[in-house]
């Protein structure tokens, strides 16, 4: 089975979709001549030309809005935002237009577009360049938000997102770009709105998305060595949120830890915990535990940044304490 990096999975999917459909085009800052800030679009300008791979000025509001307008006429733009932090400049177009145009006009025009953007801290980029603010978009009906954690999912979900008729925010992660994984040739189609049980288990459910879904798998591996059978659920889709899969798991295991790179208060984990409490209340043997970033603007200094971000150890700590509370250790 071919092994690809997360970056290569994205790049090859963009290339395949550009070949497959003339209506697909890429648009963003520095994606053409410069080949992308994180080199996801390497080689694509040379192969497809500047009509299909369009460099823009530093005008996030302008070109995100332009992509929406082009999508309204039936093109399928794939926007790259350098990082999710800069999406704040375009949030009006995303929230007030991409998310609203289908419903607000009574279903007359869809907005078939994708906005790709990496989030993630841990790169010592400081407070303005290290945020995990996907919640802002996951909050909004009309948007779809997906967050793959593996190269195979990156490929499958990007393909689905490009072929979907709604605006899909596609969350990448700086820490995952170089991660390698198996990507089968006959990759099954991914469905938006579906979580995945990435490791079956019986003692505790560990839940994550994007980088933290990978971290949760690491933690499960370590717990296995301690004789604990942890089930891991990768959310994959933040909107819609697949509550059924979460609740089904916790109804069996009776306890859960949800791990997220964003801030705890009002974060994605809060919604997950609330959903579990509503759907699995009678099965819970302990409160749902949340592992999330410290609530500070992320500092630059490595020691401080490391302390602020969740890690395998923080997931393990929360898992062990939860297992202890339910008497499974």
């Amino acid at each position: 089975m071919p092994v690809l990096s997360y970056r290569e999975a994205l790049r090859s999917t963009l290339r395949e979709e550009l070949i497959r459909d003339d209506n697909v085009f890429l648009i963003g800052e520095e994606i053409g001549v410069f080949e992308g800030s994180y080199k996801i679009t390497e080689g694509l300008l040379g192969e497809f030309g500047d009509k299909r791979v369009r460099d823009t000025p530093i005008s996030e509001e302008g070109f995100v809005g332009a992509a929406i307008g082009a999508a309204m006429l039936g093109l399928r733009p794939v926007v790259e935002l350098m990082t999710i932090n800069f999406s704040l400049i375009a949030i009006d177009q995303i929230v007030n237009h991409a998310a609203k145009i289908y419903g607000m006009f009574g279903g007359q025009t869809s907005v078939p577009m994708v906005i790709r953007m990496p989030g993630g801290g841990g790169q010592q980029l400081g407070a303005t360049h290290s945020q995990n603010i996907e919640l802002y978009y996951a909050f909004v009906p009309g948007l779809k938000v997906v967050a793959p954690s593996t190269p195979a999912d990156a490929k499958a979900l990007l393909r689905t997102a490009i072929r979907d008729d709604d605006p899909v925010l596609f969350l990448e992660n700086l820490a995952l770009y170089n991660v390698k994984g198996e990507v089968p040739e006959d990759l099954p189609t991914a469905e938006i709105g579906r979580a995945a049980v990435t490791r079956p288990g019986t003692d505790i459910t560990l839940i994550g998305y994007s980088r933290m879904a990978a971290v949760a798998l690491d933690a499960a591996e370590k717990l296995a060595a301690e004789g604990v059978s942890a089930e891991v659920v990768d959310l994959r889709s933040l909107r819609p949120l697949d509550r059924e899969t979460l609740v089904r798991s916790v109804r069996r295991t009776g306890c859960a830890v949800v791990a997220e790179d964003d801030w705890l208060t009002y974060g994605i984990g809060a919604e997950v915990a609330a959903s579990i409490s509503e759907g699995a209340f009678d099965h819970l043997d302990a409160p749902v535990r949340r592992v999330a970033a410290a609530e500070v603007p992320l500092p630059y200094a490595k020691s401080l940044e490391d302390a602020a971000l969740p890690s395998v150890d923080s997931v393990l700590t929360a898992a062990r304490e939860t297992l202890h509370a339910v008497g499974r250790r």
């Binding site: 809005g65 332009a66 307008g69 309204m72 006429l73 039936g74 009006d92 237009h97």
Partner: peptide
């Protein structure tokens, strides 16, 4: 292709429609 209530919001959209043309 729409009346828009956010002041200026329609300009990037219209620009993109012209790009699609």
């Amino acid at each position: 292709l729409g009346g828009y209530g956010i002041v200026g919001g329609q300009l990037p959209l219209a620009t993109g429609a012209a790009l699609a043309v």
